[in-house]
Every structure is written in C-alpha cells, then in structure tokens.
C-alpha cells in the first residue's frame, strides 16, 4: 500500500514562485483529484510527483522513501495526448512495459516470456474493451479508445501510483462517461493510488475520494511574482468511496445520515467530515 507524503514543497522558476507551502498526506488507495484555475500549478505539482520536475524546496516521499529524481516504473502516467506510441500496435503498446523491464539490452522478449507478455496484455486489453483492436495502430483509434489504451499501457507495469494529467479532457461527453466508468473500475481492481489533474469539477467529484483545490491567495499585481499558489480547499468526497468496495453513490438506502459514523474510519488518516459535523 502506498502513502504519498508531501512536506513543505515549493516550486520556483527563477523569481517566479509557482507553488508554495504544499503539505499533503495521501492515504493508500486514495483517488485524489487536483482542481484549480489554469496556471495554478496543479500540473506542475503532478510533474513533481512524476519527477519530470524537481521541487525547489521540500520533499516528496512514497511509503517514506524520497522520490527518485527521474521518472520510474513505480509511477505510471496517462497524459491528455501523446501517451501512446504511434509506431506500435495496440498490443505492442501494452506489451512494451513487460518487454522493457524484461530485457534491458534489446527491449524485446522471445519465446515463452513473449507469449506470457502477449497473453497478459491481451487480457488487460480485453478488460478495457479493446480486444477487437489488437492489431490496429493508435492513429486508427478514436480519442476514447486511445485513452483506454493509455490506461492499459500504464497499468500493465503495476504502478504504485497512477498519475493522470487531464486524461479525459479532450473526450466527448458520452465517451467520457464510459471512460469514467472504466477508470473507477480499474481503481477498484488495481492496488494503486490515483492522482488526477482535471479542470472539470464534476469529473473530480464523480471519480475521486478526495478533491484538492489549488489557487493563488495573493493576487495583487505586485504580489503575483513572489507568491505562488497553495492548497485552498481539501474536500473529502461524501458519501465516502472506498477502493475495492461497492459505491452506492446517492442511493438513499445506503446513504448514511449525517449523524452516522463514517463507513470505514480506518481508511482515512484525516478528520472525517461526519465527525466534524
């Protein structure tokens, strides 16, 4: 189980402070959505979780171990675009993870290990609904199918943390609802935490267990350079979603009343909103 801990992280580009005083404890198996206006640094924060950029100050740890300074297989990622490799077929894209880890010299597998990787990839592709398109190239897929492929490609590497950078932002509403359903199902099935950047609030509340808002608190012109964005809101989604347990949504039969105890207080290390009420 993977707990992410962010301790007093700052990010500055030269004089410009982008993020300041970011402190976060993310419980294992959480699904955290980062929201905020454009330019508030939520994508910068995701890039730091990915080690694509390094914090100017502070430290990020996963299970108590500081993040490696470069991206690695413990953290998977899906971007809004360009997540999949255009020169590989659907199957090849998903097999690539096993091939890269299995063969440091050639990046290719042969014989029984190749068959094994192929079978694993085909099974996962079946689960994301792409079993009919194994031999197609990404350019032949629709946007929704490309993001399904990107999810399968990232998950085959069994990341501890899955990072999503506005992954569904470019999809049509109908397609987006389908991919949301898939995303929630994958989160339940795979032992990972998810951190997702989105500008869509309803998406954030629809999928996440916790929604974190970034914003600038100092916006006077003379302050903009030296004051960055920080966490302005940190909301537990209610009713509580727990990974691996059924989600009853707003079904009144399962909705606890305000005075009931939280469904599973052990799952969160934060004060529960039910207790506070």
């Amino acid at each position: 189980m993977t707990a992410i801990s962010v301790k007093n992280v700052w990010k500055e580009y030269g004089e410009q402070v982008v993020l300041e005083r970011i402190n976060l404890e993310i419980a294992p198996r959480s699904f955290v959505a980062l929201v905020g206006p454009s330019g508030c640094g939520k994508t910068t924060f995701l890039r730091m979780l990915l080690s694509e950029e390094l914090p100017t100050r502070g430290e990020i740890t996963i299970d108590g171990v500081p993040l490696s300074p470069e991206p690695g297989p413990d953290r998977g990622v899906v971007f809004q675009r360009y997540s999949v490799f255009p020169h590989l077929t659907v199957l090849g894209n998903v097999m690539l993870g096993a091939e890269l880890r299995g063969s440091r010299l050639l990046g290719r597998l042969f014989g029984s290990s190749h068959r094994q990787a192929r079978d694993d990839a085909a099974a996962l592709l079946d689960a994301v609904g792409l079993s009919h398109a194994l031999d197609k190239y990404p350019a032949q897929l629709s946007g929704g199918m490309q993001q399904r492929l990107a999810l399968a490609q990232a998950l085959i590497a069994r990341p501890k943390v899955l990072l999503l950078d506005e992954p569904f932002g470019a999809l049509d509403p109908g397609i987006r609802a389908d991919v949301h359903k898939l995303m929630r199902q994958l989160w339940h099935q795979h032992p990972m935490s998810v951190v997702m950047v989105t500008h869509d609030l309803s998406e954030a509340f629809h999928l996440a267990t916790r929604v974190i808002a970034f914003d600038r608190t100092r916006t006077l012109p003379e302050e903009r350079l030296r004051y960055g964005a920080c966490i302005t809101n940190d909301i537990d989604v209610w009713p509580k979603r727990v990974a691996g347990q059924p989600d009853f949504g707003r079904d009144p039969a399962h909705l606890p009343s305000r005075d009931d105890p939280a469904l599973d207080p052990g799952q969160s290390d934060r004060d529960d909103p039910a207790d506070a009420a």
């Binding site: 990915l50 694509e52 470069e70 991206p71 690695g72 297989p73 953290r75 998977g76 990622v77 971007f79 997540s83 999949v84 490799f85 690539l96 993870g97 890269l100 880890r101 063969s103 440091r104 010299l105 050639l106 990046g107 490609q153 990232a154 590497a157 990341p159």
Partner: peptide
C-alpha cells in the same frame, strides 16, 4: 517520460 515510467533505460 512514458517510456521511463514503463521501465526503459536510455538505450532501450
């Protein structure tokens, strides 16, 4: 970035 998260080294 993606290739690195899939476990690639510089050569692969």
């Amino acid at each position: 970035i993606k290739a690195q998260t899939l476990g690639a080294n510089s050569w692969t």
